[in-house]
């Protein structure tokens, strides 16, 4: 995966999404001359340095100045370039929020904001470096597409599709070596959810690292005779409402799981969809409650906030009770 590329991670258990981003970008940059890559003193961290090595003339390091970088991306886009802009998710979504909204989303420019170190993946970096509001912020911007890949393979597919996709895109990826969800090739399309596991008793709708945690919880529940449907809602906007409503009707219980505040992100989007359809279902949003995150290693934080296998398992059990 992806076909024709010189690397493959289908046979490993864990692979960093940002590593994949760097590799795919470096390959695509040699094929498509319009691709330009911008970062803010983070090429070593977010792996855009892979692109810089092979296409140095189309790589721009803006230093620690995200606002200027984001608006300059707009300037490149009005001239026909396809900018991939990368910095930490906390900064991409907040430090330069107005530039994203006013210079990129409002004029509907083809800028791809691929933010790394999203959610709690910065671990001991603490709240300043955690991004737990970015989905809600980006989802509220008209014209913006919001993609949260579940693993490195999905990230690769999303980046490849993003080249010709209209309008601006915000994509969030993690930091560490995330577990691989997709070990065989599958059909990916921005805006169309993937049903990772089928089931009729309860549905878990997840994105990002929460997909794998949900799959593991579902496997455990299977041994107890509970059939859990797991949906990888990799695109938060435009939202695949059809898949959500089908799950609501068929399973009657919906749990959303995200590495993000429960306000306004995936859980909020799903809740809006179900409420507007007038469907009465058992429903719960699992994510960071309305607080600022604490310090710790990512796995400890996922455990603390119930975003690991056990946390998802418990939340499903409560919905079934």
């Amino acid at each position: 995966m992806p076909r024709g590329f010189t690397f493959n991670v289908l046979d490993v258990d864990r692979f960093a999404t940002r590593e994949m981003y760097g590799k795919v970008l470096a390959e695509l940059g040699q094929i498509n001359q319009d691709i330009v890559v911008l970062t803010a003193d983070l090429m070593r961290s977010n792996k855009t340095g892979d692109f810089a090595k092979v296409v140095p003339e189309r790589f721009f390091n803006f230093g620690i100045a995200e606002q200027n970088m984001m608006a300059a991306a707009a300037g490149l886009a009005i001239s026909g370039k396809i900018p991939y802009v990368s910095t930490y998710a906390a900064f991409a979504s907040m430090r330069c929020c107005e530039q994203v909204r006013t210079d990129i989303a409002y004029p509907n420019l083809k800028v791809r904001i691929v933010s790394s170190h999203a959610g709690l993946s910065m671990g001991n970096g603490g709240t300043t470096h955690h991004a737990t509001e970015d989905i809600a912020i980006m989802r509220s911007l008209a014209n913006m597409t919001v993609v949260v890949p579940a693993d490195a393979n999905e990230c690769a597919k999303a980046v490849i599709e993003s080249i010709d996709y209209p309008g601006p895109i915000y994509m969030r990826v993690g930091r560490g070596a995330e577990p691989i969800v997709y070990k065989t090739d599958y059909d990916f399309k921005i805006g169309r959810a993937v049903t990772v596991r089928d089931g009729q008793d309860v549905t878990v709708i997840a994105c990002g690292i929460a997909v794998m945690a949900s799959v593991k919880a579902a496997r455990k529940l299977e041994t107890e005779g509970v059939a859990v449907r797991v949906i990888d809602m990799h695109t938060i906007k435009p939202l695949d409402t059809e898949t959500i409503l089908r799950a609501a009707r068929e399973t009657g219980r919906i749990l959303t799981v995200e590495e993000h505040t429960v306000i306004g992100g995936l859980g909020g989007a799903v809740a809006e969809t179900i409420a507007e359809a007038g469907l009465g279902v058992r429903f719960h949003r699992l994510g960071l409650p309305d607080i600022y995150s604490t310090i710790g290693q990512p796995d400890d934080l996922y455990k603390r906030y119930g975003l690991d296998q056990d946390g998802v398992y418990r939340a499903i059990k409560e919905l079934l009770a």
């Binding site: 330009v36 003339e57 189309r58 721009f60 606002q67 200027n68 970088m69 984001m70 608006a71 300059a72 991306a73 707009a74 300037g75 490149l76 886009a77 009005i78 001239s79 026909g80 370039k81 900018p83 107005e98 530039q99 006013t102 210079d103 409002y106 004029p107």
Partner: peptide
């Protein structure tokens, strides 16, 4: 009109991007 503007302070950054693109082209 080359770029939608109004929020102050943005234009020169956009111009930097457009100048980079012109040089690449």
């Amino acid at each position: 009109i080359e770029m939608s503007t109004g929020s102050l302070g943005h234009g020169l950054s956009v111009a930097v991007g457009a100048a980079l693109a012109a040089r690449l082209d």
